[in-house]
């Protein structure tokens, strides 16, 4: 029978350093076996367990879109022992990967509606996946608005790509930094405040919020004030995880396991789950 605990081999094809402190690096991985590549069918919002044999595993959201066929993209913040080791990897090195795991942003439901994407810091990974996916299926959706905040201009990830989106007229990109900085022409202020200022129209609009817990906590009430129904606001939760297939119990909150029932939940669902936000 199949064994979900065994990782498949992947080669690191490309590494991009995202920030001046080199704490954030983006990795493009490529499959080594054609069969593994074929079996790997995913949607924006899903995640994988990276496997470093001898050290352990860590879960990361998939930053590439299923419309990008040649690679899987991840951005890794150096925090613990596994992420530290990941930062020592060089192009050409091998890693193990398990996935895709979890559920995804309900892009089918979004069809025919406006989509507002609200992100903060380096939690922008699965949001990139979502944006690339939506732009690839542009005719299926109405207005697409992106509100993205970072502490300072250096801490936005995927800057080149964001610049490309800013030039397009079929996506509205609003960047904000916490405090004014010389030469910054975008907005300043925290994401919840900026969201309130922009005040997206809730009519026929879906929202996806992903960022640090504190940002999510203060952005959700803003959306409620703007009269977005709970069923049309989505976010992605994170907890410590191990197995990724709903067995080990680590990411259990309420009757849900974030790894299989999530990580994507609507605000309506979150209200039924204790300890979620």
């Amino acid at each position: 029978m199949s064994n979900s605990y065994i990782p498949v081999p992947m080669k690191v094809k490309r590494i991009v350093i995202e920030d001046p402190e080199k704490a954030l690096r983006t990795y493009d991985l490529i499959f080594q076996n054609e069969e593994d590549r074929k079996n790997f069918k995913y949607m924006p919002g899903q995640f994988c367990e990276w496997s470093l044999l001898g050290l352990g595993e860590s879960p990361f959201g998939i930053a590439s879109s299923p419309t990008e066929k040649d690679f899987l993209r991840f951005t890794v913040n150096r925090t613990g022992s596994v992420t530290n080791e990941i930062h020592y990897l060089r192009e050409g090195d091998m890693v193990g990967l398990r996935g895709p795991l979890g559920n995804w942003y309900p892009v089918e439901k979004f069809k025919g509606g406006n989509v507002v994407i609200i992100g903060g810091g380096f939690a922008f990974t699965t949001l990139r996946s979502l944006i690339v996916y939506l732009l690839e299926h542009r005719e299926d959706y109405k207005d697409i608005t992106v509100i993205y905040g970072a502490r300072n201009p250096d801490l936005f990830i995927y800057r080149d790509e964001i610049s490309e989106w800013e030039k397009r007229d079929d996506i509205d990109v609003q960047l904000t930094i916490d405090n004014p900085v010389e030469g910054w022409t975008g907005r300043t202020g925290f994401v919840p405040t900026v969201t309130k200022e922009i005040g997206p129209d809730p009519d026929n609009t879906w929202v996806v919020v992903c960022g640090p817990p504190i940002m999510i906590k203060f952005t959700l009430p803003v959306l409620v004030d703007l009269k977005f129904p709970d069923e049309r606001v989505y976010t992605s939760l994170e907890r410590r995880m191990k197995c990724g297939i709903g067995k080990c119990g680590r990411c259990n909150i309420g009757s849900k396991y974030i790894c299989v029932d999530g990580p994507v939940f609507s605000l309506a669902e979150l209200k039924e789950i204790p300890e979620s936000v």
Partner: peptide, 24 residues
């Protein structure tokens, strides 16, 4: 009770991935 941890044991390129009982 069935919660578990997953840990790697070994040295260099050789070792084992083990699941170990854990508790909330």
């Amino acid at each position: 009770c069935h919660c578990f941890d997953v840990q790697d044991e070994g040295k260099g390129k050789k070792g084992k991935r083990i699941r170990i009982w854990d508790t909330c």
